[in-house]
Every structure is written in C-alpha cells, then in structure tokens.
Write a protein that binds this DNA or RNA. Structure first.
Lengths: 82, 82
DNA sequence: ATCAATTGTTGTATATATATAACATTATGA
DNA sequence: TCATAATGTTATATATATACAACAATTGAT
C-alpha cells in the first residue's frame, strides 16, 4: 500500500473532500477512501492531486512511511546549514 | 491516458523488459503493455519504476505529452544561461 | 441544543491494471 | 542462415480503483 499525505494537505489548506474531489474530477467519497488508505489512487489521479497541491508527487505519495512534515522541515534545515 | 518514457529509459540503459520487470517485481509482459500505452501503471508500480530510474516520477510519467529529451535538455540549458 | 456540513461505513456495479499463457514477428549474434 | 532472445499480439482470469447510493456518526456554528 502506498502512503499518502492527502488528508494532511487537504485540511492544512482548508478544503473539504468535496472541494478536492471537484478539483481533480473524482467522486468525493473516493477522496475518503484514499485518506483512509482503503485503496491507492491511480497514477492519473495521483498526478492530478500532486499538481493541485503544487508539490512533487513524491511529497504526496510514497512507498515508505512519511515522517511528520515538521520533522522533515527540520531535517531540511540541517542540510542547508552546510 | 498518462504518457510515459519507459521504453526510452529502458532502451537507453540497455535493459530488456525482463530485466526491468524483475527489478520492479512485475510480469515482463506488463512492461510491454505500459510501453505500448495499453494501460497505465498503478501508482505503486510508477513509484517503483521512477525510483529504479532514479528520476522524479514526473520525468517518467506525465499527464501531458513529453517533449523529446534532447529538446528538454536544450530548454534547460537556456534557463541556466541567466 | 439544534441544524447543517462534513466525514465514516457498507454495499453494489463497472472500469482498469496485472498475471499468465500461447503464439507470431522481429532483431541479433554465431 | 540458423538459433536464440526480445518484442508484439491476443485472450482469459483476478485484483484493484472508482462511482454511486444510503445512512450513521461527528463536528461546527448559531
């Protein structure tokens, strides 16, 4: 199962499932399924979602578990310090 | 239908379909289907393929048609010149 | 506390991705 | 040229993604 940050990104930006569903052209319940991890997005839908969030697809979907965004930010800061 | 550069990347790196299929854990005929555009990769397979090619997923799969790699290189050079 | 919006849950139906097989065609190397 | 590997094609079976509906549970605002 592919991990995703859809719920986080959606709520962070104050969209309802309905909003997001309309933006990418699927049924709003499909967003629910993805957020709950009931199944994966198709490649096409994943591309549309990450484009909508203006993020690289790998920041929205990953084969390995995501670390919390806060921690990821901190790690990136560390790298910048060199 | 999502566009992809699988065939280009595979042949460029001298892999057979069998090689690539084994590397990402699918049937070798599945690679054929993808290359011919018979259907899309699943998100999981797309992530594995782009990881295998060590490229951002968007460089391997796209909602819009790819420009030839040679042209893309040229465009990138232009941008660097500023 | 109530009303409305949002989310969760379950079920059914359809479309699509994948595995597998069998065989034809094309390319490659000895 | 012959043999072998690689690729193309077609078909069948299964797993998974999506749409949709109906309803329950939760949340948020007034």
């Amino acid at each position: 199962m592919v991990h995703n940050r859809i719920k986080l990104l959606r709520t962070e930006r104050n969209y309802s499932r309905q909003d997001l569903a309309e933006a990418v052209g699927v049924n709003f319940q499909t967003i629910g399924y993805l957020e709950r991890g009931d199944y994966n997005a198709s490649l096409e839908l994943a591309l549309k979602l990450s484009a909508f969030f203006t993020l690289p697809l790998e920041e929205v979907f990953s084969l390995t578990e995501f670390m919390p965004l806060s921690q990821q930010l901190r790690e990136q800061n560390k790298k910048m310090e060199d």
